[in-house]
Design a protein around this nucleic acid. Structure first.
Lengths: 227, 227
DNA sequence: CGGACTCCTGAACAAATGGACAACAAGTGA
DNA sequence: TCACTTGTTGTCCATTTGTTCAGGAGTCCG
C-alpha cells in the first residue's frame, strides 16, 4: 500500500512540481532509520495507543517536530514500520516444495523462525501486540497474503502426508504450533528469563530451544531428526 | 499481595476508626465486578498505557468518577485485575505427581490450558500484553511463584524421564511449548480466524486444536495418546 | 555566490487524560 | 426516625498528546 521508497515526508513542503531533479539525500535515509528503530521499541513496548511521539523522539534523540517532519502522523509512522518489517520477513522465508524431505524442510522452518526470534525480537513483539489489539492495521494482510501463504505450505505438507512421508496431522495446526512455539521466545522473553533465573539470553539458549523444538515436533510428526 | 476482600475503595472516606460494624454491601461487589470486566477488555486491547479510565467507565456503563470511587487510580485497578485473574487460574491448575501416568497428566495439562484459552481469552491476552511490555507489574510474581511452579512440574517430569517413562526431553522447554501453543489460540485469535477464514470460533475448533496438540506433543515425548 | 530545494525546530493549540473534590443521594442498623 | 456509612456524580485542574505552522538553517548544483 504505502510506498516506502521516498516516504511521505514533506507533507506540506512547497509546490514541488517540476524543479531541477534533486537527490533524495542520505540524511533522510539515516534519520528515517533512526526513527523507525526508536518507533519499533516504543510501539513494541506500549502498543499503538500507548506509544507517544514524544517518547519515540527521545529514543531517537531528535525533537518531536523533526520526527513529525519525516512521518506526518502517528498512523503513518506505524504503517511504515510494518511495511519495513514485512519486507524484512518476506526476504527470509524460504519456500518448501513437495519433493523436499519433510524432516529437513520442517527442521529448517523451525530453526529459521527461532533465529528470527533471536535477531528481531522487537518485530515479533510488535506483531504480537498488533494481533492482540485486533490487528486494526494488518487485518488485510492477514486475510490475503498470510492466508495464501498458509494455504500454500499446508498443501505441500498434505502432499507429504498423502505420500505417507509423515504422520497424518493437520498441516494448518502444525504451522500454528511452529509459529507459536518459536515466537514465544521473543514475545515472552521476560517470563522465560525470570523462570529460568537468567539476566539475558545467550546464543546457546536459542540453539537449545531450537534443538528441543525440532526434536519434539518432528517426532510428533512421525519424523526423525535430520542429520 | 493486595488484599482483595474489601478492596481499597473509600480512599478518602471519613475517619473510619471505630464506628458500628458495617456490612460491605452487595452493591460494592456487583459494581466492582462490572468494572473489572470492563477493565479486562480495555486493558487487553490497549495495554496499560493505552487504556483510559474514561473508556473503561463507558464499557461498564458508569461515570468516570464512579469508577474512580472503586479503584482510586489506574495502577490499583490494573493490579486488582491481576489479583483476580491469578486467583482464578490458581483454582484450575491441578497438580501432577511422579506416580501419575505421564500421558494422562500431560494430556490433561494441555486440554486444561486449551479450555482456559477458550473460556478466558481476555485474561490470556492481558497476561501476554503485560509480559510483552516487560511485566512491570508481574515481575515479582514471575520471579517467585511462577518460577517455583515450573521447577516443581519440571522435577516430576524429570522423574518420569529418569524412570524411562517418557523420552528425555528438557522438561522446562516442554512447559514453554505447552504454554505457548495453547495460549496461541487466545492471544492470536484474530490471526487464526483470518487465516482459516472464519468469523468466530466454535467449540469444535478448540476440541480439534486440543486433539492435535495432545497427539503431536505426546508423540513428540515418546508417549501414546491415552484412551 | 545565489537560488532552489531539503531539513530542522520552537511555539502554539485543541483535545484528551488521570485524578481531586465537594456536594448530594441512598442504604443500614438502632 | 436518626446518625452514620457507603455510593454517586458534575465540575475543575494540571499535564500530556497529536498535530500545525511559520520561519530559519543547511545543502547542493550551476
Amino acid at each position: 500500500m504505502t510506498n516506502q521508497t521516498v516516504a511521505d515526508a514533506p507533507a506540506r513542503a512547497s509546490g514541488s512540481g517540476n524543479g531541477r531533479k534533486y537527490r533524495p539525500g542520505r540524511i533522510r535515509e539515516r534519520n528515517r532509520e533512526k526513527i523507525l528503530q526508536a518507533a519499533e521499541q516504543e510501539f513494541a513496548q506500549h502498543g499503538y495507543k500507548g506509544a507517544t511521539i514524544q517518547n519515540i523522539a527521545e529514543r531517537a534523540g531528535l525533537p518531536k517536530s523533526n520526527v513529525l517532519y519525516y512521518f506526518s502522523n502517528k498512523k503513518r509512522m506505524y504503517s511504515a514500520m510494518f511495511d519495513d518489517i514485512l519486507a524484512r520477513w518476506n526476504k527470509v522465508f524460504t519456500d518448501i516444495r513437495p519433493e523436499d524431505d519433510p524432516a529437513v524442510a520442517l527442521s529448517t522452518f523451525i530453526r529459521t523462525k527461532v533465529e528470527m526470534s533471536r535477531h528481531y525480537p522487537l518485530a515479533s513483539r510488535l506483531f504480537a501486540m498488533e494481533i492482540i489489539q485486533g490487528a486494526p492495521f494488518l487485518l488485510d494482510h492477514l486475510r490475503t497474503n498470510m492466508r495464501e501463504w498458509v494455504r500454500g505450505r499446508a498443501e505441500v505438507m498434505q502432499q507429504w502426508i498423502d505420500d505417507g512421508r509423515m504422520a497424518p496431522v493437520d498441516p494448518v495446526q502444525l504451522i500454528f504450533l511452529i509459529w507459536s512455539s518459536t515466537q514465544h521466545y521473543a514475545d515472552f522473553q521476560v517470563q522465560i528469563l525470570m523462570v529460568e533465573n537468567k539476566a539475558e539470553y545467550e546464543k546457546r539458549d536459542f540453539d537449545h530451544a531450537a534443538d528441543f523444538l525440532v526434536e519434539v515436533i518432528l517426532r510428533g510428526c512421525g519424523l526423525e531428526k535430520p542429520t
